[in-house]
Design a protein around this nucleic acid. Structure first.
Length: 575
RNA sequence: GGACCUGUGGUGCAGUCUGGAGUGCACGCCGCCCUGUCAAGGCGGAGGUCGCGGGUUCAAAUCCCGUCAGGUCCGCCA
């Protein structure tokens, strides 16, 4: 039907008779003797010259036959990759007509997202979406290549799995053959891949779809894709090595840039220095501890457990209203308040602090603030006092918001965050909550603390962070039933409970489970960062809105009475 | 469950704070003209439930209340 793609036509084809297929991107008519068609397919655009008038409109699908020729002097289009040539003496065959599209596909104006989603098949024709989806395909291909080279075996796991209520809310699927019973769509193939390790697969991976029935965000869809992997007879360092290699290869393949290596930071250090467990290392602006400086202060606002500060370079120019909104933001994030100090040049080259609070500080405190923050004239110092971790997290969030870094600035700062705590807070009944998941192995050095001081126990869990985005996480797993039982006990999961929810896994552990560890990272997030997109919706072919609907198909929808009956279901009103 | 932002011809915006005739800009669309354009150009034209409902007012796109949709965030996402 066609001899080549539109974007492939070049100076080397001059004189050749070609046949091209595509969509009419634009047309320019010059009376009844001359007209131009910009013909588009996924590879690009080429200009076709017609001697006569046209009966085509935008987005008509056409097949064009003509002869490639060099463009006349002075009519070369530098903005087109095919701009040196054009297709002359064209005969145009209309393969399909099109209504006037609801929006223009040239990418010049930002179109409302619901409209793009309702007409996603049109949106996908744009350069942007073509580039994003093809970039994603390239990522998948590169990942498969690297995983295979590392000896990993691709295995598919079921989408219809048993409900294991724990962690994320599951999507459930009613069973027709067992009415009133349900499958669950996997939140991740976590348990399946551990079973594969018991099954001797040794090194498993899968580009796996995961489903979680939780509220959506710009970086979260109900269904998303992970590179899921697990390996036997390996530890944390092996897994970090595997993943670093996969990510390194993918980064090079997609961006042409080789990352400056993968840095390493402990969870505790990341919280202390950056106020988050997913630090963006593209900029510094680290948190400063002023607890010592205010150890014996008379200022009530600074008498909390911790005093943490952030020095914003050049922030002295912030307007009063911006400062007010920062204070509000800090309160919304859970701080008791936020104090600010503008650093002004004073007499004799000294610095001065400008703030409603400044006159309450004694000279020793002021000197300590200058020393600890290493501020300069024109800077802004933000201070939060209160419970240690909360204070860090509040300033960490403000740090990100002030820096306002963009995706797609060409920098890729990978960092491994290690030594996560085993537990994170306690639930209503006072039992520790696993920070990662209940199959995570504790750091051997901390095993004795499990029963005495569980909150001090570090786990063998690790996250990979890119530019402040958590790409994925993994851990060394528990492979012994006795240890797993101990963990369940600490978590307040009874024997019966564990048996009914994870019995199949525990049974498997009775038949020779190898030590194993693994990881999973989000491909949507990785590709969106490389593509310079703020939302993963732009690297997903058919995404859903924040309220979980699909404007194109109308999903979710009610099913008929007959279907309900067959499944043994009855609708009942919610609320 | 909560906070904030947005909703105006097919599309993207301005107009809303400070109420006064559906006012404006750009793109698209339709018709005519045009033999080298490429975001073609020129002339003319069509196209509106100002998301929806209620309230205040002589008068509401504009103010108030409610509601729906979309987005950003908090909660949530082991």
């Amino acid at each position: 039907m066609r001899t080549q793609l539109c974007g492939e036509v070049g100076i080397g084809d001059v004189g050749a008779k070609v046949s091209l297929c595509g969509w009419v991107s634009r047309r320019r008519e010059h009376g009844e003797h001359l007209a131009f068609i910009d013909l588009r397919d996924h590879s690009g655009i080429v200009q076709c010259v017609v001697s006569g008038s046209l009966d085509v409109r935008s987005e008509f699908v056409v097949r064009v036959e003509g002869t490639v020729r060099e463009r006349p002097v002075g009519t070369v289009n530098e903005n087109l990759s095919t701009g040196m040539v054009e297709i002359g003496d064209c005969v145009v065959e209309v393969l399909a007509r099109s209504q006037v599209p609801p929006f223009v596909l040239d990418g010049r104006v930002e179109v409302d997202e619901p409209l793009r989603m309702r007409y996603r098949y049109l949106d996908l024709r744009t350069d942007r979406m073509q580039r994003n989806l093809r970039m994603r395909a390239k990522a998948n291909a590169q990942i498969r290549q690297t995983m295979a080279s590392l000896g990993f075996c691709e295995v598919e796991t079921p989408l219809l799995w048993a409900p294991t209520p724990e962690g994320a809310r599951e999507f459930v699927v009613p069973s027709r053959l067992s009415p009133q019973s349900f499958y669950a769509l996997p939140q991740s193939p976590q348990l399946a891949k551990q079973m594969l390790m018991v099954g001797g697969i040794d090194r498993y991976y899968q580009i796996a779809r995961c489903m979680r029935d939780e509220d959506l965000r710009s970086d979260r869809q109900f269904e998303f894709t992970q590179l899921d992997m697990e390996a036997s007879f390996v530890g944390q360092e092996d897994v970090i090595g595997f993943v670093s290699e996969v990510i390194n290869d993918a980064t090079e393949a997609l961006t042409g840039v080789t990352p400056d290596g993968f840095e390493r930071i402990t969870w505790a250090e990341s919280i202390d220095r950056f106020g988050t467990d997913k630090p963006d290392l593209r900029f510094a602006m680290e948190l400063v501890d002023l607890t010592g400086a205010f150890a014996s202060t008379n200022v009530k606002a600074f008498s909390g457990e911790t005093v943490k500060a952030l020095c914003v370079e050049g922030g002295g120019q912030f307007s009063r209203s911006r400062l007010d909104s920062l204070v509000e933001r800090a309160k919304a994030l859970g701080a008791a308040g936020l104090a600010w100090f503008k650093v002004n040049p004073g007499e004799g080259g000294e610095l001065e602090l400008e703030s409603p609070l400044a006159r309450h500080l004694d000279s020793g405190e002021i000197t300590a603030v200058f020393k600890e923050t290493r501020c300069q004239a024109g800077d802004l110092i933000l201070v939060v006092s209160g419970e240690y971790q909360r204070s860090c997290l509040v300033l960490g969030q403000i740090r990100i918001e002030i820096a306002d870094t963009k995706v797609g600035d060409g920098r890729y700062r990978y960092v491994w965050v290690v030594d996560f705590p085993m537990f994170d807070g306690v639930d209503a009944s006072g039992c520790p909550i696993p920070a990662h998941h209940p199959f995570t192995m504790a750091n051997p050095a901390d095993l004795e603390l499990l029963k005495t001081e569980p909150r001090r126990v570090r786990s063998q869990a690790y996250d990979l962070v890119l530019n402040g985005w958590e790409l994925g996480s993994g851990s060394v797993r528990i492979h012994r039933r006795d240890v797993q039982n101990t963990i369940f006990e600490i978590l307040g999961i009874t024997k019966e409970d564990a048996e009914s929810r994870f019995g199949f896994l525990l049974d498997a552990f009775d038949y020779g489970a190898p030590p194993h560890a693994g990881f999973a990272f989000g491909i949507d997030r990785l590709v969106s960062i490389f593509a310079g997109e703020e939302s993963i919706r732009d690297v997903v072919a058919f995404p859903k809105t924040q309220s979980g609907s699909d404007p194109m198909t109308g999903a979710p929808k009610a099913i008929g009475d007959a279907a309900m009956k067959e499944l043994g279901l009855a609708a009942r009103s919610v609320k």
